[in-house]
Amino acid sequence: MTDGTYVGPKPVKPIPQEIRPSQENALRRWGEIRDWVLGLPALERVFLVGAGGSYSGLQAAHYLLDRESALPVVSVNSDEFYHRASPSVGPGALVIALSAAGATAETVRAASWAQERGAAVVAVTLKSDGPLAQAVSNGFISLNGDGNQIVLQLLVLATLAREGHDVSAKIDALHALPDATDAALRGFEPLAAAIAKDMKDVPVTYLLASGPLQGMGSTFTSCFLQEMQWMHAATINANEFFQGPFEVFDKQTKSILFLGEDATRPMVERAERFLSEHSGTTHRIDSRDLELAGVPSDQRGFIAPLVFYPMMFRLAENYASVRGYTLEGRRYMWQFAY
């Protein structure tokens, strides 16, 4: 399974320098995003639409809306959204479409269809000249995926502000994010190296998560391990774990846990107690272990997913380093029509 992507083990790439500029650029969009949401003629329901890593990348925003908004909110795969053709997509619906390059055909079609139905559609993407941004009337353009994650949260906070919520504490916490991310990534690097070294040859990688970190887990196993490292991998919701998947775990099974500081943390802690007794090595990535300078204690659960996002890229770079497979190679994706 080389197909030109095996280059042999190499030193891990350094932490990229563009994370902070992208975060700061996105944070400057708050006033524009707030005004756009407040100016919508009606807002009765929210659809979060994306595919692949973009679909997974919507889950932290979905979690916050579920926790704090009275509005119905659904996150759905782009093609499912289009083919289901819910009659509730129309005036009064806000559709947030996420696509990094804006070139995912299914997301472009879904967003175009929703706009034709009269929904307020906004693209969250990296390219103003990409197909998604060109297909809809409204879009917020970021410099990289870290910026997209902040834009999604700002859209949620603007929705909450429209409902009358005081979001100032979360806005303040977001402004601490660049410094917090810098410190967290530096502190995480030794753990990332240790996990990659220990897990690089496992037959299947299982990752357990919950709440706003569920999507980050899916991004790691699906996009990085399956797509880029050609490893068998799956992310399991920490409660779904007890509905069947735990039967395949034994003392030879290794796994990874994502623990946040949100209301769903007890779900993962329960799974951890089971794994400590019945499974093999369990690697914990716990936001409580992160130095999040400047983030108030009551906002750490909100900020954690935004820090886990670049952490997953660092974990993936460490896998690529020890396995010798680059993150750029694909066998099928983008190689031909499918």
Rank of each mutant, 00 (worst) to 15 (best):
M1P: 09
G4A: 10
V7Q: 13
V7M: 06
P11C: 11
P14F: 00
N25M: 10
N25E: 15
G31D: 11
D35G: 04
D35N: 06
G39Q: 08
G39D: 05
L43K: 08
R45Q: 13
F47P: 02
L48G: 08
G50N: 07
G52T: 03
H62T: 11
Y63D: 14
R67P: 00
R67D: 11
P72K: 13
V76Q: 13
S78G: 10
E80I: 01
S88W: 05
S88N: 09
L94P: 13
I96V: 15
I96A: 03
L98Q: 13
L98N: 14
A100L: 10
T107K: 02
R109C: 05
S112T: 14
A114H: 01
A114T: 02
Q115I: 06
R117Y: 00
G118Y: 04
G118I: 10
K127Q: 14
D129N: 15
P131I: 05
Q134I: 05
S137W: 04
F140Y: 04
L143E: 11
N144Y: 04
G147N: 08
G147P: 09
G147V: 03
V151L: 14
Q153H: 15
L155Q: 03
T159R: 12
R162Y: 08
A169T: 08
L174E: 07
H175D: 12
A176P: 00
T181S: 10
L185T: 07
E189F: 03
L191R: 15
A192C: 06
A194G: 09
D198Y: 00
D198S: 13
V204W: 04
T205N: 03
L208I: 09
P212E: 08
G215K: 03
G217N: 11
S222G: 11
Q229K: 09
Q229P: 00
M231T: 07
M231P: 01
H232R: 12
H232N: 06
A234D: 01
N239R: 11
E240R: 03
Q243H: 15
P245E: 09
P245C: 04
D250L: 02
Q252G: 11
Q252P: 00
T253D: 01
T253F: 07
K254L: 02
S255E: 05
I256E: 01
L259C: 07
P266K: 01
E269V: 13
F274S: 03
L275T: 00
S279D: 06
G280P: 06
G280S: 02
T282S: 10
R284I: 13
I285C: 10
I285Y: 06
S287H: 00
A293K: 14
S297W: 07
Q299S: 11
G301M: 06
I303M: 11
Y309A: 15
M312E: 10
F313K: 11
F313Q: 15
G324W: 11
T326L: 12
R330I: 03
R330S: 01
W334H: 13
